[in-house]
Amino acid sequence: MGDGLGGRVNSDHGARFRIALVIGGAVMAYGIWGVLDDARATHPGSLFVYVVGADLVHDLVIAPVVCIVGWLLTRVVPEPWRSPARAAVLISAIAVVVGWPSLRGYGRARVPDNASVQPLDYSTALGTVLAVVWLGTAVWATVRVTRRRSNEDAGNA
């Protein structure tokens, strides 16, 4: 399988890369200096854990879960429904991620006397967003199915 990419050269390690490495390396060094210089506020140790932890959580949890869900959808949902089903699941997941802190009311719990923080009923709000997403993808799926059927009819004629 080689590099898994068909052996195609997909990076450039010439002069442009070396210049970018020098500039980008200097910028990274400035950022690391800033973290260490302001250690009382940045807590370098735990910031490191969060950044590397984000890598690990993505690579070991999020991506495998997405792969499994994607594989299940491939197994369970036939074309031409598959792409709309994938879209509905993916957009819903993103909406849940963005709405999660509001849904859980984390901010409001921190400042309970501030009624302007997370003022909505977020289970209704998120439910509404998800309903719109599934309705939209259902319309898309119907259009796909109808179009495919009419193409087949035209092919059979």
Binding site: I23, A29, V35, A41, V51
Partner: peptide, 27 residues
């Protein structure tokens, strides 16, 4: 969302992490 599930200061950590990340992006 006024949610701070970490021990560091948001402003400082977000600011300096942005410098590190954009450096890595340049590379």
């Amino acid at each position: 969302n006024l949610w701070y599930p970490w021990p560091f200061g948001f402003k400082e950590a977000h600011y300096w992490a942005a410098w590190i990340t954009i450096g890595a992006l340049i590379v």
